[in-house]
Design a protein around this nucleic acid. Structure first.
Length: 165
DNA sequence: CAGACGATGCACT
DNA sequence: GTGCATCGTCTGG
């Protein structure tokens, strides 16, 4: 399966109140303190999982949350129900949905993203227009504009299908 | 269409 | 015991 990443958020260091490393090292967040380039998956609200990529150097706990994607390969064609005009594929439009569709759980923490199990690849597509905005679903540090999404993607998280400017 | 809310498990204090 | 980096459903306007 593959998808084009269209929305991410940054969580950077112990001094980022919204980062899982904010309380300091714990059993759960230990992979954030390790080498970059690995996955970090955690359980949220008892039901959903969230996929992160560990980014900064060892002992600098930081990660990028993968919030949404557009299905590319390995997905059934989108079903055009009834007479809806332009069906939008939102199966990966949210971190919980994305992990569900890819079958990811905490067992998938620590995977090397340069390996061949779960990895990132540059497909040399034209660079999208990227918009910065506040991170979603948190109450702390909402002033930081550390959410980034493709301005032209209809698969970003949230319900709104409002037009972009 | 927007806002409220319940589900559900576990890390952390 | 508290609080989540969520989502789908239900409600009211």
């Amino acid at each position: 399966m593959s998808a084009r990443i269209v929305e991410v958020e940054a969580y950077i260091g112990e001094y980022d109140p919204a980062c899982h490393a904010a309380p300091g090292p714990t059993p759960r967040n230990k992979t954030l303190y390790g080498v970059p380039g690995l996955t970090y998956v955690y359980l949220i609200y008892g039901i959903y999982y969230c996929l992160n990529f560990v980014t900064e150097a060892k002992d600098c706990p930081a990660a990028v949350l993968i919030r949404a994607g557009e299905p590319v390969e390995g997905f059934e064609p989108i079903q055009n129900v009834g007479y809806s005009k332009s069906p939008v594929d939102r199966r990966l439009s949210g971190p919980g949905k994305l992990c569900r569709e890819f079958g990811l759980s905490t067992a998938h923490t620590g995977i090397d993203l340069t390996g061949d199990v779960l990895y990132v690849e540059d497909r040399h597509e034209p660079a999208p227009i990227i918009v910065a905005s506040p991170r979603i679903g948190i109450t702390k540090a909402t002033d930081r504009l550390w959410r980034f999404h493709d301005a032209n993607s209809q698969a970003v998280s949230g319900k709104s299908l409002k037009a972009q400017s």
